[in-house]
Design a protein around this nucleic acid. Structure first.
Lengths: 344, 344
DNA sequence: TGTTAGCACTCGTTTTACCCGAGTGCTAAA
DNA sequence: TTTAGCACTCGGGTAAAACGAGTGCTAACA
């Protein structure tokens, strides 16, 4: 229903506004190389575009700014492929070139690159290691009343927590429990550990350990699911450079929200593969009303295990960010697959 | 050299300004219950106090604001003991009442309480676990080219890093190395591990391991000192509520500085026991020019292992913060001592 | 001699009036 | 259908005026 000219004008306005953050007038559009029409013509189309909900005015005689609907159209239909500059490309390449030994390291680096190249804030979730399998468990007593349980997975992920030690448990028994666990649970995915504990280990414990009840609940605690997943941020302070965040209250709302890790996790947690673009109020949370969030999952062995994302103003460099996120989620998945595959 | 009345007036002005963040006039001081003099009298003393460098004017006919020197005097001589309210006290008590199993947990909680009760930002360093002793080391091969080294200390602290595995090393040898390390290095403080590796383990490796060179450097890497110490922040966004940080640029400088973990660590790292109060430009860093930082070490077995601190505007509730930090550093030290002592 | 009342003065803030100019909508001509 | 022309709108900037919180100083008072 939009004419080609209207689309062209809309695109020009959006791109101008993304650059300048100022309302765009008909005159400045008409001066562009790609545009051959007079300001008056453009004004007519602008009026139409406004009626259709793609443009807005800040006051009656101001230039136009793109509406959320316009950004949506832009992202869905008008996006041109983005080409990275030489140094940017080098930056990205080098991230995946160095030999990376730990998943967490790769993920942190990715968050850094993301924010560095975009001057927005980056959020990286995960990786969730539920799928990875138990390689070894070690239970080290610390004094009389506590022990540290250390779990190492086949992906090299280490998790540990301290557990209260039941007084009835003797040192020898602790060792025996460790042996049983290692023998019976090795190779089992983390998310199945609890289940496997009951099906595989319970009866053995009954057999070999005196105070079986206490031992079982102790073991269960030692294997309990890790705390909620980790979140890495990059360049939070970048947001303070954006003119839309010159208002302290808005910044505060945003930063406070980012401290709420469970909310952020809920918002971005990896579900289906692929990229998600949420523009302005498409984000349900009010603090993100003036933000867009572009996120994509990265995966391990084809299954999404984490998310990388960018938070910026709705006036965001969509092409650039989308391309970058694509690159990085792909690259990060590869790195993880390499880390994982080293086991076979 | 200051009369009692001048001191009283100075104190009133400081406390008023701490509350209001606005220049304080002679009239408002004279209205206080504790003050019986007329505005004119107060103005005279104010003029004297200004000459002496304790007060400043924002412009020629404004009220006075305390100078940095005034805060210093206030902190050194005028401070009254602060009494916490019932709920505040409960909050603090409950922090140390619950059974805490991990040092890191205690430290994080402390950061939370600090910022919650003060509405400033809290910074908590450490704890540095260099003093704690190796309890157990486990080296778990992950595929062919890498291994995860997990170190558990007698304080229940777990550290792990992934290390590239020299191709020459065989599985059996890896096990042997682990055994040697556990046998020889148990009980040695972390900071001496590298040294002990050479004095205690080197020759044994030579004897039992084929490619001795590679094994040694691998082991050295596995035992390498942890990354720089951890920093926990609480309530960073609290700062945005303070009127002195309504200016985005100032906030940005502050938040950016806080991302520079090595600088923060350098600034606050635990040295001698006790409390440090740095007011305004007493902080060397420019971004802290309008801040005061109050910090105190907490200790383990009498040795300082970490720092808890508060960052707020120079116009800070000194009594309250000082009292709180004293409480918490004392309490945290106790918790750590309890955690530590469980080993004996 | 120390304290206070009185008063003129200062200066940042707020209010008002005004102008400027970027940008619009509409109309009529090309 | 496009464009030129023109009156109109309104935010932003500037200058002048009014306001008021607060000061410094002087003179009177206890």
């Amino acid at each position: 229903m939009l004419t080609d000219r209207q689309l062209l004008i809309l695109q020009s306005i959006i791109e101008d506004y993304i650059q300048s953050a100022e309302p765009v007038g008909s005159r400045s559009i008409s001066k562009k190389n790609s545009i051959t029409f007079s300001p008056a013509t453009i004004r007519n189309d602008m009026a139409d575009l406004e009626e259709l909900g793609f443009l807005e005015k800040t006051h009656s005689s101001s230039g136009r700014i793109p509406s959320q609907k316009a950004y949506r159209l832009y992202v869905d239909r008008l996006l041109l492929p983005y080409r990275f500059s030489e140094p940017e490309m080098n930056n990205i390449q080098s991230l995946f070139a160095g030999k990376i030994l730990e998943a967490e390291e790769a993920v942190k680096e990715t968050a850094g690159i993301l924010s560095e190249l975009t001057s927005y804030a980056s959020i990286v979730l995960g990786p969730e290691m539920f799928e990875s399998r138990l390689r070894q468990i070690q239970i080290v007593p610390i004094g009389k009343a506590a022990a540290v349980a250390v779990i190492v997975t086949d992906t090299g992920y280490v998790e540990n927590h301290t557990v209260a030690l039941p007084p009835s448990l003797e040192a020898g028994e602790l060792e025996q429990i460790t042996n049983i666990l290692n023998e019976r649970l090795r190779g089992i995915p983390l998310y199945q550990l609890q289940r496997a504990l009951f099906s595989e280990v319970r009866d053995l414990l009954k057999k070999y350990v005196l105070n079986y009840e206490a031992a079982l609940s102790f073991t269960e605690e030692a294997l309990r699911k890790s705390r909620h997943e980790k979140i890495f941020y990059g360049g939070k302070t970048n947001l303070l450079n954006q003119p839309e965040f010159k208002d302290v209250d808005r910044v505060r709302a945003l930063l406070e929200l980012m401290e709420e890790e469970h909310l952020i996790h809920e918002l971005l947690k990896p579900t289906m593969n692929g990229m998600t673009i949420r523009i302005g109020q498409e984000n349900t949370n009010e603090a993100f009303e003036h933000c867009s969030i572009i996120s994509a999952t990265y995966s391990l062995a084809g299954k999404p295990v984490g998310t990388i994302g960018i938070v910026g103003p709705t006036r965001m460099e969509y092409q650039k960010v989308i391309t970058l996120i694509n690159h990085l989620s792909y690259g990060l998945s590869n790195v993880l697959d390499d880390l994982y595959r080293r086991d076979s």
